[in-house]
């Protein structure tokens, strides 16, 4: 913390409330981190532990002291009142997920990531049965030039996890954003073709992709339906199971 000295004489532990429940937090934590530590799960797509916060997907929206904010970037403050699972917050999250579902070309029925996809799992958990928005069916490019890795931009939600993970975990800077608005897309640091980059199938940039956009080749449907991550338990269940006993 660069501004640690400023706060040196202020207590580092504080209390916030999430949906009426008192939660201990530490100064410098974000709302999402404090909630996670207390066993309260907040949905997220661009946040990933260990990566610099991006604050782009907005799925982790909460109402804090009466104002909507992204809980992955908003720091906790003493006495902060957070609404996480109110109908208003849930409805905003549903709308965001439904927009993501129509903004790309998502075909769960044959996607290798199905059952392990965080976008799909969030939609399930929020009870989304169809999108209220009309589908866009954008034209997106697939790059399968690399022998071990492929990018299917049809499934990309522009969360930037791969951009940050390639830079900060893998030290490679393989992925970047190009274009703006509806033309924004993931590009690679090379001639333009994935085959000419230093990407490898063991890169964490692949592992952090929440959807089926960056995939190792030849893995396919290696886990049978029924045994995949989110077949076994809904997304967020791990955090909630870890909630301290006395506060359930």
């Amino acid at each position: 913390m660069s501004n640690a000295s400023v706060h040196a004489n202020r207590p580092s532990s504080l209390t916030i409330t999430i949906d009426g429940r008192e939660v201990n937090a530490v100064r410098g934590q974000t709302i999402l981190e404090a909630a996670e530590a207390a066993g309260v799960w907040i949905p997220r797509l661009c946040h990933f532990p260990g990566l610099e916060e991006f604050g782009g997907c907005r799925v982790c929206v909460v109402v804090a002291n009466g104002r909507s904010c992204a809980s992955c970037t908003q720091p906790v403050a003493p006495g902060m009142v957070v609404e996480n699972e109110t109908e208003q917050v849930l409805e905003t999250r549903r709308a965001i997920i439904e927009m993501l579902l129509v903004e790309g070309n998502h075909f769960c029925m044959f996607c290798e990531k199905s059952g392990r996809c965080e976008l799909q799992a969030l939609a399930y958990r929020l009870g989304i049965t169809a999108s209220r928005f009309d589908a866009l069916w954008p034209k997106r490019e697939v790059d399968a030039s690399h022998p071990d890795v492929l990018i299917d931009r049809n499934r990309c939600i522009l969360c930037s996890r791969c951009v940050r993970a390639s830079r900060d975990f893998d030290g490679k800077h393989v992925f970047h954003f190009a274009g703006r608005g509806a033309h924004k897309r993931i590009v690679v640091n090379s001639s333009g073709s994935l085959a000419d980059t230093s990407v490898a199938s063991a890169d964490r940039a692949l592992e952090v992709c929440p959807v089926g956009s960056i995939l190792p080749k030849r893995r396919g449907y290696d886990v049978p339906v029924g045994a995949r991550t989110f077949d076994v338990a809904p997304i967020g269940a791990g955090t909630e199971r870890a909630r301290p006993e006395e506060s359930r």
Binding site: C108, M109, C111, S114, G115, Q120, A123, Y124, G127, T129, V225, D231, A233, P234
Partner: peptide, 9 residues
Amino acid sequence: LGHGLLKYD
């Protein structure tokens, strides 16, 4: 529907 019955695949 709940977990396992609401699915897209």
